[in-house]
Amino acid sequence: MAFFSKAPARWLRYVAGSYGMAVLGGGIVLIMSLAALCAPWLAPYQPDALHLDAILQPPCPDFLLGTDVLGRDVFSRMLYGGRVSLWVGFVAVGISVSIGLTLGLVAGYFGGWVDECIMRGVDVMLCFPSFFLVLAVIAFLEPSLLNIMVVIGLTSWMGVARLVRAETMSLKQRDFIAAARLSGSRTSKILFMHILPNALAPVLVSATLGIAGAILLESSLSFLGLGVQPPDASWGNMLMDGKNVLEIAPWLSLYPGLAILITVLGYNLLGESLRDIFDPRLKEQR
C-alpha cells in the first residue's frame, strides 16, 4: 500500500507506459464485445424494424445514428452487426488455430518426411491466391455466416502452423521433454500436455491479430455482397447499402466503417501489446 500512497502519479505513469497499449486495446475489445453481446437489451429498436415514415433520417435523438433506405435504425443494426464480427472473428480463428496447432506440433515434433510434407503444404497454401478462392467458394456455396467462418478458418492457419512448428522444434530439445519421454509418457500426452502449453504464448498473439484479420475479411466479403445476407445486418453489408446513397445519406457509410476501424484497431493493439508482454526482449526491436 505504501507504494500506492507514496507515488500514485509515478505508478500511473508506469502502468500507462508499459501497459497503455494493452489497456487501450483490451478496453476497446471489451466494450465492443459487451455491446455486441448485449445488443438485444441495448438496441432501441429491432434491427429489421422498418420505420417507413422516417426513411433516410440523419442522426437525431430518436435515431442516434440515423436510419437507412428502409427506415431501419442504424445504431440498432450496428449493435447486431457487431455480433457477426465477434462471432466470425472467434470461430474463424478457432478453426485456423486448431488446424495450425495440430499440424505445427506434429511437424515440429516428428520432423523428417512428416515435417517436409506439412511444411510444403503450408508453402502451397501460402502461394494460393486465397482471396480469389475464398470469393469463389463462398459465392458457390451460397453466402452465409457459417460458410464464411469455415472458409476463412481453412485458408488462414499457415502462420500458426509455422509458429508452433518452430516453438516445438526448440522445446523438444529441452530436458523436461526428455524426462517425460524417459518416464514413458505417450507421445500424444507429451505433445498436448507438455509442449502445447509452453508454445501457447505466441499462438495467443497470432490469434488476437488473426481475429482482426478475420473481421476485416468478413466485412470486405459482406461489402461485395458475398457475406452476411440481408436482412441480417453486418458492418460490411451496411456499408454496401450505404454506398448506393452516398450522396444523400453519407452517415450510412460513415458509422459502420468507423466501427470496423475501431474494433480491428482494438484487436491489433491488444495483440501487439501481448507480444511485448510475453517477450519483452522483442520490444527493443520494434
Binding site: 470486405s220 466503417g257 476501424l261 484497431l265
Partner: peptide
C-alpha cells in the same frame, strides 16, 4: 492504416 478497411477509405 492496418485497421482501415480499404473499401471504407474508398467511400470516405
Amino acid at each position: 492504416g492496418f485497421a482501415m478497411p480499404s473499401f471504407w477509405l474508398a467511400l470516405l
